[in-house]
Design a protein around this nucleic acid. Sequence first.
RNA 1: GCGCCAGUAGCUCAGUUGGAUAGAGCAACGGACUUCUAAUCCGUAGGCCGAGGGUUCGAAUCCUUCCUGGCGCGCCA
Length: 553
Amino acid sequence: MKKQLRQAIKAALQECYDQGTLNSGVLPEEIQLEIPKNPDHGDFACNLAMTMAKVERKAPRKIAEALVAALQGNPLCEQIEIAGPGFINFRLAASCWYGVLDQVMQAGADFGCSRVGEGIRVQVEFVSANPTGPLHIGHGRGAVVGDAVAAVLQAAGFDVQREYYVNDAGNQVSILGRSILLRLRELQGEAIDFPEDGYQANYVRELAAKFRAEQGDLTDVPETAAIEHCTRFGVAEILEWISEDLRAFGISFDRWYSEKSLYDLKLVDKELAKLKERGLSFEHEGALWLKTTDFGDDKDRVLIKSDGSMTYFASDVAYHMEKFERGFDRVIDVWGADHHGYIPRMKAMLAGLGHPPEDLEVLLIQMVNLLRDGQPFVMGKRSGNFITLREVINEVGRDACRFFFLMRRCDSQLDFDLELAKQQNSDNPVYYVQYAHARVCSINRKATEEGIVQPVLGEVDHSKLKLVEELALAKQLARYEEMVVGAALNYEPHRVVFYLQELAAQFHSYYNRQRVLVDDPATTQARLYLVNCIRIVLANALQLLGVSAPEQM
RNA sequence: GCGCCAGUAGCUCAGUUGGAUAGAGCAACGGACUUCUAAUCCGUAGGCCGAGGGUUCGAAUCCUUCCUGGCGCGCCA
């Protein structure tokens, strides 16, 4: 719809030049059309006359007059007005808007999908929590946002892969291994002195007990090998928990990428060699550094420590180089906001290798403040005082939980009060939206009871839809695809949430004011058609968020 | 000290990438169930968009200086 109008304006502009009513000959790159807040200003407003005032050296209103003269008689438009400082306001014919109903019916579950991202390969890496303990609430937010970002990108036609990076190498997991081993010794009756930096939580004891039951006591095994055994066991077990938790949340990954495999396959060495070859790394005081300051970082960064061990950064560099070698055009990382200091060095690394830094997009997910009855929960993996994501999902439900996490822009902090989220049962916006869907289903059930046949595509008399709220609903549906594209290009799934709330509100209002099943069969058919289009769009949008669309509530 | 994010109604937040009179939801107040589901709807009230300065036809939005809150600034992961 917007495209057609834009095309018409472009043609009108050309006509003005041909006829000499406008002279600059400048063709703007993009003609901006926006949906005005105030419905009195029409369906679309165009600011072209104002932006052209400078090059054209004419008053905006004069330019607008010339354009409007050229646009007269266009069948798309019912009314064209010049308003305010020089806006051109378009009101489209109702028949244009009701055309989208047929598009919704025809496309069904695919309505809203587009091809703007066609042929572009995108990887979304998210969660990627260390496999040293169960997921907590902060991971949950990143998980849902990452999943929804991937979903809107897919809907916009991008070729998307979801990946989880498993930090199964390095210090943290070997601390886990040592912690398990110590608990194992404890089970064997040894008095142990549990270190400060060990994992104190109870699940480590459970892992030790399970290890003992399955693999025995490790009595004659040398310490380093024993720790390694425990590490592998612990990582595998915990990854199992994590993937179960994510499944419960409706999230699955195309690939789980092991950090350890980077080392096993010598990929880290290989990528570091490439950096050296390009003169991007240098030795200093026995360590190997990456010269990130040449590309906007404020310090150079260590890749190999003077004791010969690799930093985390080294494997991250190798991992991201490898991502691009796999052929992704764009790589999206979803991180906790506390890692934001890491972005400049990653972008610097890419720039050094000749990639435009924009190819890597880092989404920072701000903290979740977990509360219960207004009291803050102090979280810490090692202290053992935390609520797992699983417990939260069990307590407040998957739909409410996902919806809640997606309601805000990810770069603002989120207070999550468990009692509030549960208590909100009737006030929670997720039910409001789901209820709208269930209500349409209920109308359909009633229609079937009364022997009314569902309307068929192409056999509906749109002219029976005469009310302003019906037209407004059709316009809202027409906006859906563009909203999804915007959410995808900006990585902002919360737009889908706000759209859903608007559409549901419009529907509820309509429902309360008008009956769908009325005496006149043609009107009944037209209204059934309209509300079922609404149902389809509600379901499609909820699907993007990973929230269910119940038929009955 | 330097950097990142945020600051909009009493509370929680949107704000179409610079557009016209700044919007929702809670909370408050007043109404609507003999109807396809009241988990709903209708109405009232609520504002110095953190503060100052700048950019222009036009600023909550862009630039700048402050203020407040959160988070970072290791040869930790």
